[in-house]
Design a protein around this nucleic acid. Structure first.
Ligand code: FES
Ligand code: FES
Lengths: 130, 130
DNA sequence: GACAAATGATACTAACATGGTATCATATAA
DNA sequence: TTATATGATACCATGTTAGTATCATTTGTC
């Protein structure tokens, strides 16, 4: 059971770095500091740019820069970007076979845990990490 | 982010069924009732037998039976069997590059969430599901 | 304007985990 | 002895994650 995947993790590291150096930073610098494969890092940063979390600047002296203050970047958002919806499956049985659906205790309990996780994740922002 | 995989889910369904019918039940019956592919179900049950959660009986009239009272089967255990350790990765960076390790805030927060999840999962047993 | 230095976009490959099958061996009740 | 059940194991299919490769586009500098 893995809560955080690599791209989320790398993204968080990059965002932390960018929070400490609030000017434009090149991919090369990030790669050097964080030791992440360059093309992979690029892909991640481009995605964050698309999501308006980073701004990007082309040409010489270009690179990436935070587009949002660190306190407003919550890791639940980053996870959703790179890992899709944070939702835990409770039952895989075909709907018509599963006898309970609405009343299933397991489903309810799992949902409670899920909500709990999300709630906790929603409270962590980048500013809290640096 | 998936908390429960199929084999865990199927295992839980099977355990629930076996909790309601405390005698020996054949794979065929389980497959019929739960609508799970037979060979897959077999693999799961054999595993549960190896883990001493089920007992198995060969030959005519054979099948599987609970070896432990439902109240003593916790779903965290089933998850660990089929999904490995319930532990969330916090950092993939090579140890020597990662600057913090011990003090990393993210790591700590993720760990807290993780413990929370485990704590909640530890409280759910099969008896509570039926 | 030419050129170098940066990102944008996209398609592809590799590795791994999950979900599922197939087959043969072994035990046992009748 | 035979039919009926599980035990063990190897295999295949699919999907997700991780990572690469390539070319197009923008932009600062000379
Ligand atoms: S068993 Fe199907 S929803 Fe719980
Ligand atoms: S950044 Fe490496 S442990 Fe947190």
């Amino acid at each position: 059971m893995k809560l955080i995947t690599r791209n989320t993790d790398y993204a968080l590291q990059a965002l932390c770095y960018l929070s400490k150096h609030r000017e434009v930073v090149t991919v090369d610098e990030l790669v050097k500091k964080l030791g992440v494969p360059r093309p992979f890092m690029r892909k991640i940063l481009q995605r964050l740019n698309k999501e308006r979390i980073l701004g990007s600047y082309k040409g010489q002296g270009g690179g990436f820069k935070l587009a949002v203050p660190p306190a407003k970047i919550f890791i639940i958002k980053i996870m959703r970007i790179f890992q899709g919806k944070v939702g835990l499956n409770g039952c895989f049985l075909k709907k018509d076979i599963c006898p309970n659906k609405g009343r299933c205790v397991l489903r309810k309990k799992i949902h409670a845990i899920e909500n709990n996780v999300v709630k906790q994740l929603r409270e962590i922002n980048i500013a809290a990490l640096i």
